[in-house]
Nucleic acid binder design. Structure first.
Lengths: 142, 142
DNA sequence: ATAATGTCTCAAGCTAACTTGAGGTCAAGC
DNA sequence: GCTTGACCTCAAGTTAGCTTGAGACATTAT
């Protein structure tokens, strides 16, 4: 377990976030137990970095800052909130599954569009490929 | 080819969008060739509905209104813009693939969290399951 | 007839998630 | 010793994507 700490600038680089975004997250309570040194400078430790990993996962899964904050609060409230946290992740799993489903359908449509416009560009015109075109719904529904 | 038309309310219901959202889309140029009757009421025909299908696909793939509008404009400019439209869909395909990748990684993390909190709830405490816990990065990277 | 329902425009309002700017501290390098 | 760069706070500004509200017609149900 390393005792090392990192500055906000280092963390920003590592997570590919801006410094002001990190300060905003701190302010919004997404990084529990983040402390400042005697000069008032934020010192990120490993626990903070792990929290940030979770934040990134939740954020890119579509969760709002407010809901992520709620989760972080529950986490710091101990065993009393275990059920809420379980429920949150179960809902998130369902959400992710339907997201994946949607994106896969979209990918099929986009693949078709690539083929369509690929042919059209080859032909120099949309006219021919337009004739044989399928509707989007046909493609999306496999 | 049906000649039928639909009111904004009917379309809103069918697409699960609000009436004001549809008006906003129209205003932003996402629905080419949408016409109004003598009373000034929007009449959606099949072409408009198909455009709306595309809008939904692009939107849920993460494209901005502005970029969707650009695509719709290109579409109505004819064969001169075929190359741009092809490029757009090729980029979108890449975007979708990395989106899918990310969400799949997130799903693995969330699955782990479900198992973690499932056990914790059973135990009545996080203490035990915390011992054996893996780091997020381990899970996300398979 | 009258009231409810659905449509319209146009302008203003709203929320989320940041970003920017002013004004200030501190440590390191020249 | 002074400037540069990284950090700080706090308040205000920004952008996207809608939503809401006021005021007005027109068609349908009672």
């Amino acid at each position: 377990m390393s005792q090392e700490t990192y500055t906000i600038g280092q963390v920003a680089t590592r997570f590919n976030l801006s410094v002001s975004t990190l300060r905003y997250y701190d302010q919004e309570g997404l990084i529990p137990n983040l402390t400042k040194d005697q000069a008032g400078i934020r010192r990120f430790n490993n626990e903070n970095l792990e929290a940030l990993q979770v934040v990134e996962c939740l954020k890119t899964s579509g969760m709002s800052i407010k809901d992520i904050k709620q989760f972080m609060q529950w986490s710091s409230e101990g065993d009393e909130t275990l059920a809420q946290r379980l429920t949150l992740f179960q809902k998130l799993r369902e959400h992710l599954e339907s997201q994946l489903d949607l994106l896969e359908r979209n990918l099929r449509v986009v693949d078709y569009k690539c083929a369509y416009y690929g042919q059209a560009v080859e032909d120099g015109t949309e006219a021919r490929v337009k004739q044989t075109g399928q509707s989007i719904r046909e493609i999306a529904n496999h």
